[in-house]
Write a protein that binds this DNA or RNA. Structure first.
Lengths: 188, 188
DNA sequence: GTCATAAGCGGAGCGCCGTCCGCATAATTC
DNA sequence: GAATTATGCGGACGGCGCTCCGCTTATGAC
């Protein structure tokens, strides 16, 4: 998603964009989010310049690939709240997201970029994530199991930090301990 | 510090190593820990191969440059404990370290590498840091202001995570809030 | 159908990383 | 002092990221 919403893409550009996306889905699945963009462009049968024109940064491409999965995870909130007490639901959601990040090497860096910048396109993703978290947190505040004074963004950043420092699948135990620490800090 | 402690370096090698270190101190001070290693080698009047022979990874070189400062920070623990209650001392130490990491762009990545691997050379640094933290934590456990069940390494990793996700100087406010969260999680 | 032009294309270019290996030389042995 | 050898040197190499810009082409006006 490179273009600020203006007129629609030219037909050939749209085709190329789709080919790049398909190649990226493939490459990221095989090698993680650090896959060579040059190779992706080549696979897509497209010049490297074209790839960068559509996706000016690696993060743009990565988000385009995983956006639907992020949506899916955010959509699990109501189900979690139905099955768990609020604090448990929050914990479960964080764990789920953490697992997702662990599966995709390098995705945590992209999350960092999304949380750290104020560019409008990223704000949308940010709003999606903080919205999901805010719902969980509000439920916990309502029943007294969570502090009312911690913004959702802070929790998201904390999760990002955990994933950055202990985001490999084999560090899951470590990451889970850090999650415990985070949850402890969120209690009133 | 590349060689496993065997016989001492050859005289010319030692000279080159020192020149590289001096150039690195300079370059990192000017441009942060992402400075071009090639340029450092050039400044040192040394081939790039020589630099990599002595410092196989960027992290090795970065640690060699900042090791003394890390030592210094670890040595502030007794003074802090003399001036503050244990929890306050811990908080002050963490803040101090965070500030140090903020000043050196890219250093947090190196910290991550040091904490995440089990290579013997890194273990030494790890022990230094966890030792300092352990002293602070034990004091807090003794007076009941901190939980007894959180290993020092976890706290160090948490700090690393904070620095990775919000390590720029202009994100200091954000990082401080995450530190608050961490401290809250450490209370009994 | 023709044409003007905005939109898009793609690869050359530059700088970087990290490795590898043929050549040089300090250290050691006699 | 000469010979031997282990240690060290350094740059060429292949690959990557990102940018820039001259050429191509789809699109919309007429």
């Amino acid at each position: 998603m490179a273009e600020r919403t203006g007129r629609p893409l030219r037909a050939d550009a749209k085709i190329n964009q789709d080919r790049v996306l398909a190649a990226a889905v493939d490459a990221f699945a095989r090698e993680g989010a650090h896959a060579s963009l040059r190779a992706i462009a080549k696979d897509a049968g497209v010049g490297i310049g074209t790839l960068y024109r559509r996706f000016p940064t690696r993060e743009d491409l990565v988000w385009a690939v995983y956006r639907s999965e992020v949506d899916r995870i955010c959509a699990t909130v109501p189900g979690l709240l139905a099955r768990h007490a609020p604090a448990g639901a929050l914990r479960a959601w964080l764990e789920q997201f953490l697992g997702f990040l662990e599966e995709k090497p390098g995705l945590a860096d992209t999350l960092k970029a999304a949380l750290g910048t104020d560019e409008d396109q990223r704000l949308e993703t940010r709003a999606l994530l903080t919205g999901a978290l805010a719902t969980l947190i509000e439920a916990g505040v309502a029943d007294g199991s969570l502090r009312p004074d911690v913004p959702a963004l802070d929790v998201m950043l904390a999760l990002g930090g955990i994933s950055l420092i202990a985001g490999l699948p084999e560090q899951h135990g470590q990451a889970a301990r850090l999650l415990d620490l985070l949850m402890a800090g969120l209690r009133p």
